[in-house]
């Protein structure tokens, strides 16, 4: 389980996360949504142990995130951080030396599932291919928690679809928990169990996706419009 208890995070004077509390259960798919700058990436970094809370507690399986808990968390950054002179094959070998839970066989299965070749240098790959390659190495880890930061951004609809199918095919739902930060909500709505909505560093809503439809008759996007409108009104007062 991942837990946030009254978490605050400041970068200098700027507050990135404000009084955030939630718990994520095992075996579910969560969406972390909200506008740019709402705190999505910071939330993921706090879980991955790449940033530390200014106040409050973040725990992963009851422990504070550090280099040790990083063994249970796979983190896909939104940045383009692949080494350009590597080939996918080099990248897979490199990851294999870095993570004890990395599964090379699965990595090559994923590579062919994503229709990627293993011997072309990364600098010659298209943006869509690099996006898929990042997912290959993230999913080839047997990590309990998978954090994906904007896995769809800048990718065309066909690539997005192959990423969604890749997730559904290769994730072990008995053991793995998935947290996807994105503003491409329509893409992943049907994939999610629950959605967490952030605004200005605060968690303003946390709901089950099917409950929104059953109880309110709303998709996530429609529902977000409603809650953003009501929070805009509150701010006017």
């Amino acid at each position: 389980m991942i837990e946030f208890a009254e978490v605050y995070k400041k970068y200098g004077k700027k507050k990135a996360i404000h009084s955030m509390s939630f718990a994520l259960e095992k075996g579910k798919i969560y969406g972390l949504v909200g506008p740019n700058g709402s705190g999505k990436s910071t939330t993921l970094k706090l879980i991955a142990g790449l940033a530390y809370p200014s106040e409050g507690n973040v725990t992963v399986n009851g422990k504070k995130p550090d280099r040790k808990t990083a063994g249970t968390v796979a983190y896909l950054t939104e940045l383009d951080t692949l080494y350009p002179s590597f080939t996918p094959k080099d990248l897979i070998s490199f990851y294999d030396t870095q993570f004890s839970d990395f599964d090379q066989t699965r990595a090559y299965e994923l590579l062919s599932f994503m229709s990627l070749e293993k011997d072309i240098k990364i600098k010659h790959l298209s943006k869509g291919s690099r996006g898929r390659l990042k997912l290959v190495v993230a999913l080839a880890r047997d990590a309990e928690y998978l954090l994906l930061d904007e896995p769809f951004s800048g990718l065309d609809p066909m690539v997005r679809e192959s990423i969604v199918k890749g997730l559904l095919t290769f994730i072990d739902f008995e053991k793995q928990t998935l947290l996807i930060a994105t503003h491409e909500i329509a893409e992943i709505e049907a994939l999610l169990d629950e959605v967490l909505v952030l605004q200005n560093g605060e968690l303003i809503a946390h709901e089950e996706v099917e409950a929104l439809r059953e109880e309110k008759g709303l998709s996530i996007i429609e529902w977000m419009k409603v809650i953003f409108q009501s929070s805009a009104k509150r701010n006017e007062i």
């Binding site: 997005r160 329509a186 049907a190 099917e210 439809r213 709303l218």
Partner: peptide
């Protein structure tokens, strides 16, 4: 994908 479902009914239904 995604928009193939209506908002007014649960996806499972």
């Amino acid at each position: 994908m995604g928009d193939q479902f209506q908002a007014s009914k649960p996806i499972y239904m």
